[in-house]
Design a protein around this nucleic acid. Sequence first.
DNA 1: CCAGGTGGCTAATACGATTAGTCAGAATCT
DNA 2: AGATTCTGACTAATCGTATTAGCCACCTGG
Lengths: 204, 204
Amino acid sequence: MPRAGLTRASVTEAGAALVDEVGFDQLSMGLLAERLGVKTPSLYKHVANQADLAHLIAVLAMNELADAIRDATQGRAGRDALVAGAEAMRTFVREHPGRYAAGNAAQITGQEDPLLPASGRVMASWTAMLHGYHLDLDQEIHALRMLRSTLHGFGILELDGSFQVDTSVDDSFTWVVDFIDHGLRSLPEAKARPLQSASGTDSD
Amino acid sequence: MPRAGLTRASVTEAGAALVDEVGFDQLSMGLLAERLGVKTPSLYKHVANQADLAHLIAVLAMNELADAIRDATQGRAGRDALVAGAEAMRTFVREHPGRYAAGNAAQITGQEDPLLPASGRVMASWTAMLHGYHLDLDQEIHALRMLRSTLHGFGILELDGSFQVDTSVDDSFTWVVDFIDHGLRSLPEAKARPLQSASGTDSD
DNA sequence: CCAGGTGGCTAATACGATTAGTCAGAATCT
DNA sequence: AGATTCTGACTAATCGTATTAGCCACCTGG
């Protein structure tokens, strides 16, 4: 019995790849073990249980999503940043449906949970992007929630195949992002904005 | 052994009540049987299996949601209808988180699936509401998808407790609905709209 | 009153997650 | 190198839940 050379990270990565293939709800310890060329109980040397594995996948997913959005919006502002960020998110969801689902299903369990900073990074990227619209502070939080709701909802509905009519979903996505951009630019801008403390880890 | 008097409908209703209490992912045949004062295998006289039960709950949920939106928007138009419909949906989601989750998880399995007309009714209500904004036909489908995405996303995020900052979620919801209303009223209206055939069962 | 169908029950099966206990190869230390 | 320890894999066993098989009492319609 040669060592398979597994690690917590490699098991997580393989689990993420698996859920992207078969769907998050089809995740099972047996299937993952098979993919890794190992017997099921061996996985328990690396993850505590299936819930732990799902959580690890969620953290990985959130960090990857945060990277994607950050990279896409880097160096852009206003409408450009919104479009790029939204597209990056949609692309991530379509290419990694399983890990995105894992990210949704996971709950932050405490102050130590690495999912907390991971989702904080996503939030921070959106917040930075919204800064380009120079909103009032109290409007910004609402705008952030609207943005998250819309992009998240769109992603889920698209994944589930809930957009049935043959109108192009790509066109709808572009339209929706435009709709948001126009709406944000129609809001009363904050003329003189107080310096913000740039605490980039706020949750929303 | 006196008869418990169960029917397919009463089992479905009890299942719906159960998932609203314990969460859709905690649904189990054993727990439901216990609630109904019956042994687990007895349930199989009324539903084919757990997936069947979940599907029945989904159909029930979709029809109830359709009723709620229809009733709320009845006799209103434009902004009033949007606000009323959106609030009705949000209320439904908060009062019936389990059955709403069931509705999301379910997939339409074929042309005979009663979930098809049920979700068609929801769609028809939103479409009727959007008519009040006199949009171009090609914009209306995009607007419908935007509306569904935003309300669905908001509902999910709220249920999951994903809105963490202490800013009022009620305020955010009102803001979001206002945002949509303003956006829709800013779109170029269709001046002379061709007669639509009112086929209220389109899927989206 | 009797025949059939229906809805409940108990017993048995299957399958996936998890735990216990064992052992060999890898890593470390002298 | 050789001895020791640690670690990661294995097999065997347990457990919980869904599901199926087969039985039998109750209700219904004639």
